[in-house]
Write a protein that binds this DNA or RNA. Structure first.
Lengths: 184, 184
DNA sequence: AAGTGATACGGTATCAATACCGTATCAATA
DNA sequence: TATTGATACGGTATTGATACCGTATCACTT
């Protein structure tokens, strides 16, 4: 049987989720899965600024402002975001962050990235479909959605049908379940 | 600055998700967050069978069968499920599992639990309700669930009705939506 | 100029889900 | 002992969802 310290590092590296630890936004530790998400080698990530992983400096700064309040309160911050992969491909991720130093939140942060779906290889939804899927995820019926959008319930059923066909599922609950688990 | 090995274990323990490594379903390694999710001490979890974390042996066995196929293919298995906390409170989690030993999947598994919401608003779900809500979150129909559990579809509809009444929602999609957003 | 995909809407048929009615067993407990 | 809650099942009625049929407009692209 493997010894305890070894198992710890195995659990860290093989956890089915990307993990990265930064100090003042400089990458100090990553696990194998995170390296895979970024399409870079582990040693290439060491010491790299987190800025390099975003497409634009603005995206980078956005998070610094958005997540800061939660971090200072010692809470876990979470959202969904794109993680840039080398080669232009992006991965849609559930992102979570927690600081180890609430007084100076960015001094040491542990972040996780759970891949939801590859936007590049995924199915493209139309604006109307994206609009409706939000109402569907709130448990609204076709009639209720039609009322809000000022359309015929029949039209909402059309959008539902298009969504089910595009994503190859049998009902809306399965659609939402697969969206949440990143099957698309 | 702290040395590398230390940072690794910090990243492991402070990652904003629960991580647990099991060997033949016996808990070998857990991080601080997982211990917190279960309401138990880290040392109390060491060596414990995973069975102890579920209310009934049936709930325990359910997963073993459901996730096995994906694990054998070396893929990450994921669903949403309730993790029982000591004291009766349950936490709705995004669950992910990956085996390190595809030939004998349960020999060594790393699992993560990302807390979605505490079902803590005075609502207590029964074992059967918890069992069924997992299938519902996968978009399964009453007939499909009845087949798997060896019950009448009529009985599954009873459980559905109890869940809707308990959580004061009008349909299953709304139930799942509120679970996912932490409204309970 | 023709074709394609998205939008919007109507009808209809079928299946699933929800909401009631009822009975019955069983375990816990007041 | 009586009651309560969970489980399990049957019937039935209504609403919602899904799957087809059709037409039509509009923007965009071959």
């Amino acid at each position: 049987m493997v010894e305890f310290a070894d198992l710890n590092s195995v659990a860290f590296d093989m956890a089915p989720i990307g993990i990265v630890l930064t100090e003042q936004r400089v990458i100090r530790v990553v696990n194998d899965v995170f390296a895979g998400l970024t399409g870079r080698r582990k040693d290439a990530l060491q010491g790299l600024s987190f800025r390099e992983l975003y497409d634009s400096p603005r995206e980078f700064d956005d998070f610094r402002d958005i997540g800061m309040a939660a971090l200072q309160r010692g809470e876990t911050y979470s959202d969904e975001r794109l993680l840039a992969k080398q080669g232009g491909v992006a991965t849609w991720c559930r992102f979570r962050a927690r600081t180890l130093t609430p007084a100076d939140p960015l001094a040491r942060v542990v972040m996780t990235y759970a891949a939801i779906s590859d936007v590049s290889s995924g199915v493209r939804l139309t604006p109307r479909e994206r609009e409706v899927v939000v109402f569907l995820s709130q448990g609204k019926t076709s009639k209720e959605i039609a009322l809000v959008l000022g359309l015929s319930p029949r039209t909402i059923e059309d959008v539902r049908a298009r969504l089910l066909k595009k994503l190859q599922v049998r009902n809306v609950t399965e659609l939402l379940s697969r969206l949440a688990s990143g099957d698309f």
